[in-house]
Design a binder for these strands. Structure first.
Lengths: 134, 134
DNA sequence: ATAAAAACTTACTATAATTGTCAAGAATAA
DNA sequence: TTATTCTTGACAATTATAGTAAGTTTTTAT
């Protein structure tokens, strides 16, 4: 999994937390999550064009989720960000003797990522607040 | 998953198939699997130093498995080849709000790769011979 | 009009992937 | 034993792609 997906999920997590009321600034998310603002601003483009988020330019602009956190799975986010630099399928063909290993792995990954949505992530994080932070 | 693991598994698969009697030539494997011989010869080094394969230099040299295919899991191979350029754990820390997503993914991947050994791959491939090839 | 923000363009850096050249070791034939 | 051939092994160089940074343009609320 590349940094695209990791940063992207952190970004979406921030929106799930803070964009209910008003759009959230890229700068603020980058700062809170310790991510390069410029790099993040590039990851955000496919998230926009896939319809997962709304963007607002100009003063008091920013980003917000396009729908409820519960309706957005981690798999959707990863698919959008990993995009055409896609993993196994394109390159491998079924005649390759290792094909079923990698397609099985693909399925295991997809199943797992599909089982988690943004609400879950937010919830897990709430729990962690009490468990990990002193 | 990078090409290192894919090529590496194809290489190990070839050894499982053909190295029972005598060492197998890198050249032959590269040719059969359509992999750059030079690139493959670099992937083979960590496989050697991790003890998964034996190498023999000189005339009638080549490579062979260090133990039975059944005793070698795909996870072992991937771990050796993906090496220090490791995936999630090093970079992410548990305070990151997306940590449990990626560590859970890591576990899902590990569990899957651990469940497959070289004998399985060989076996699956035997079946495919009859299913796919005309 | 002005200031705030995303969107766009360009360039740089690091790392993965690939290729090429030469050295070292081992079997074989004379 | 010695020459020869076959093979891996080590080192360097190149190309491609991911990751990062900076500056400019466009849009919009006030």
């Amino acid at each position: 999994m590349s940094t695209r997906s990791r940063y992207g999920l952190q970004f979406m997590f921030e929106l799930a937390l803070h964009s209910k009321e008003r759009p959230v600034l890229l700068r603020d998310i980058a700062e809170r999550q310790n991510i390069s603002e410029k790099y993040l601003s590039k990851l955000v483009i496919p998230l926009k064009s896939s319809g997962l988020i709304n963007t607002y330019r100009g003063a008091r602009g920013g980003y917000s989720l396009a729908c409820e956190p519960k309706k957005i799975t981690v798999k959707q986010i990863v698919d959008v960000l990993e995009g055409d630099a896609s993993p196994v399928e394109d390159i491998q063909n079924p005649l390759n003797p290792t094909w079923d290993v990698w397609s099985g792995l693909d399925k295991a990954i997809s199943d797992y990522l599909e089982s988690i949505n943004l609400e879950t992530v937010v919830q897990n994080n709430r729990n962690r607040q009490f468990t990990y932070v002193i």
